[in-house]
Design a protein around this nucleic acid. Structure first.
Lengths: 346, 346
DNA sequence: GTGAAAGCGCTAACAA
DNA sequence: TTGTTAGCGCTTTCAC
């Protein structure tokens, strides 16, 4: 390994000059600097992050915890997180908690000691995680909690948009297929349902179960939805919607003719379905990017190590931490079967 | 931040005793150890990885570079990598190169200085990457190169299996939709095509383009495939297959009646398609896990920092570094339209 | 403008 | 069994 000492010896200066030439070029005589830089390049010198981090009291690394990387939702968020982190000069440890709260907490504990801060995406063990993270800088995605900075999308509004859309198509009985029990996202969607019902009292809603946020979950829910008598169904996410569609087809229930289906998130799978899914869209990469921005902001206010900083100086939640959503209408939703609207007026 | 000194002071021992009590409990008097451990817990002491890493000459971190996290293939490999790495006591920096060779190389350079070793998955800039990684321990996934350890799946054999399957269904003209130009995986598939043609001279093959390994790529290829007169098509991967199916449907070409489609990888999207895809399956998590095993093995032979170790001692490629594949037959393949087999004998 | 030297937190000789 | 000490590679005062 090439160190500052090697570069120093080779270019006939002291190690401090080498360090300066690389970090603060303007504080070094041009010719000295050029010589040092040339030698450094020739030797292939790369500063040791562990060493400089040790000195500076930070690691330059962030941690990201997600429930399941194979879920396209989290894949997209992860992509956004690492892209933005790169821009801010951080590397990202990514860990997949496998939807397991206990493992998640353990991972958070482990990451804490080797990162400057954590992004916890849709944590399944929020309380325990935050306890494990103690005073480590943390940003939550898809979860709000006391004074912990968080970023989320306006899922409740998304549900309202979806119900609005379905109602306009003549649907008066809408089913919701719920996601993970302890999931904040699920709670937000249910809150959206409540809001929609309040605004549109002529729309009945029925919710079924809590299902795994994957294709299997949708398959499992399909029969319940049919039995519910709903003419339209809003799924926890796109994967669940796909499972619904698949199982419904097997049962001979046509989507959207017999039943309209709305997904959530607009992950890339939404367009893969037959028919392509009407879904509630969020910019997931942006969600991840914003989480990093928030985290870096927190890091900036904390003096590296030691002094816990003035708590009062903690940045207040920016008004921007709820990202907008939009309804993307594709082919999985259409007029309600028995609606008088089925035959266009005139 | 709580350090060894704090724990030492609080428990009335020296810092080395603290270090020992935590790392080599058997070398410390039971009562001393218990006291130290108790204090450490009470104070919430967590060893600073940067410091111990600096001392030990390693970081405890691995780096993983993938072309696109949103591609379910890489999501699965990533999941496998980080899971296995956790078991070996490593954390994983994950970076998405966005299918950009230049960025990829830059990322490799950056990761090198903060990791003990790298896993390069389907590198788009192999030569440049390896140069950038210089003497850093590297394991390649889906790419072979000189003496660099690598892990891959037996894609060529997968193609043979697919062709065999199609031939048995009466197909005599099979199209292949190629992936990224500089992709080794694509080359392996083409090699499989050659092998299949040699073994089954009665099967004609026609290859079209090189397309992006995503849904759009498949859409773009669909019309060429139809024009080629093939009765079956083998896609670079499942996403491309899905794009093909989608575009074919739009054109009124029925899959599998008019055209049989075979995917590759058996990512979860294969079962989402309508019809579910016949595809060549690999255990992707295992692929990632094996890559980590290989890397850790290399790490074990290298003495931390300094001494470059005896090159002759480098572990030779284990015979296991090509993972088996299997053909998963679903509903996207059926008898060739004009085949005499269309009507079963007798 | 440059160098000497003091550590960051930890572990591993080496002493006692 | 426990303590003292010397660094790992780097940055950063503080002198010169």
């Amino acid at each position: 390994m090439v160190t500052v000492r090697d570069v120093a010896r080779e270019s006939g200066v002291s190690i401090s000059t080498v360090s300066r030439a690389l970090a603060e070029p303007e504080r070094v005589a041009p010719e000295t600097r050029d010589r040092v830089v040339a030698v450094a390049n020739r030797l292939g010198y790369r500063p040791n992050r562990a060493a400089s981090g040790l000195r500076a009291g930070r690691t330059g690394a962030l941690g990201l915890v997600v429930p399941d990387l194979e879920n396209p939702y989290f894949a997209s968020v992860t992509k956004g997180v690492q892209a933005r982190a790169r821009q801010t000069g951080h590397a990202v440890f990514v860990v997949d908690a496998g939807e397991d709260p206990a493992l998640e907490t353990e991972l958070v504990t482990g990451l804490r000691s080797q990162t400057d801060g954590l992004v916890l995406c849709s944590p399944r063990a929020a309380e325990a995680d935050l306890e494990a993270a103690r005073d480590a800088p943390v940003v939550l995605v898809n979860l709000r909690h006391d004074g912990v900075p968080s970023v989320s999308s306006d899922d409740a509004h998304g549900v309202v948009l979806a119900v609005e859309h379905l109602r306009a198509l003549g649907h008066r009985r809408v089913a919701y297929v719920g996601g993970p029990d302890r999931s904040w996202s699920d709670a937000r969607r249910r809150a959206g349902l409540d809001a929609a019902r309040e605004r549109y009292p002529d729309v009945e809603t029925v919710t079924v179960g809590s299902f795994r946020p994957r294709v299997e979950g949708g398959r499992a829910a399909a029969d319940l939805v049919v039995a519910s008598g709903a003419t339209a169904v809003l799924a926890y996410n796109d994967l669940v919607a796909l499972g619904l569609v698949a199982r419904l087809r097997e049962r001979g229930v046509d989507v959207p003719r017999d039943l309209s289906v709305v997904g959530f998130d607009d992950t890339f799978v939404a367009t893969l379905a037959t028919p392509p899914l009407t879904t509630v869209r969020t910019d997931l990469a942006r969600l991840g990017a914003r989480a990093v921005d928030r985290l870096v902001a927190v890091l900036g206010t904390r003096r590296p190590s030691g002094s816990d900083g003035d708590p009062a100086a903690a940045p207040t939640a920016s008004p921007d931490d709820v990202l907008p959503v939009e309804l993307v209408v594709r082919d999985s939703t259409t007029l309600a079967p028995t609606s008088e609207l089925s035959v266009p007026p005139r």
